[in-house]
Amino acid sequence: MGNFFRVAWVVMRKDLTIEARSREIVFTTLFFAVACVLVFAFALVREGRALEDAAAGILWIAIAFAGTLVLGRTFERERYAQTLQGLLLAPADRPAVYVGKLLGIVALLVAVEIVLLPLVGLMFQAAFANRPLILAALLLAGTLGFGAVGTLFAAMLGRARSRDVLLPVLLYPITIPVIIAGVRGTAALLEAPPDAEMAWFWIGLLTFFDIVFVTLSLWTFEPLMTE
């Protein structure tokens, strides 16, 4: 078990080192996510008042779009010199490689969310600071579920010619329950007063999705990546 987490840590650290050096994924994803929020803000905010629950929806749409970019670029790096094959040739547990990639992607998405939250809060007058810990748990659970499916699909599509088109086509239908749970949970927290009980219900549901998605991905990663 120690070996499993050691490999996951090594893979995640490598991904974050590369990103810290190039900052390519974080900058492009942030730029895209911020542009997305601004466009929606101009469309949905009238005279300083946003549509009900718009902030929750926009936040999660921006996370989903940004997540797709993060997934695509992260695996494009592995495809460039076929380094994913190098990873899979190592005697390490292949599910550990998956977990390492997943943790790296979740870390990048969390960095994007840290910038997105105040921006969405400002543009849509959303009181995200009301229940910060519950919101953090909700975002983390949702990001993990989205990343779990996305990492599997992005790795699987690494050799497909039309991977950029196929990734969202496969990813969005399967992660819709995660996005919906995230939106409803966030909307519950933005009510006045915040409905913490409802938010915890959605966090519970997201945790259930996470367990299902991560378990299925760990189970299928090795056979899917073995030609």
Partner: peptide, 13 residues
């Protein structure tokens, strides 16, 4: 140990 056409090296490292 495999040295293939693709070198399995990370150019950013």
């Amino acid at each position: 140990g495999l040295l293939a056409h693709d070198l399995y090296l990370y150019p950013e490292l």
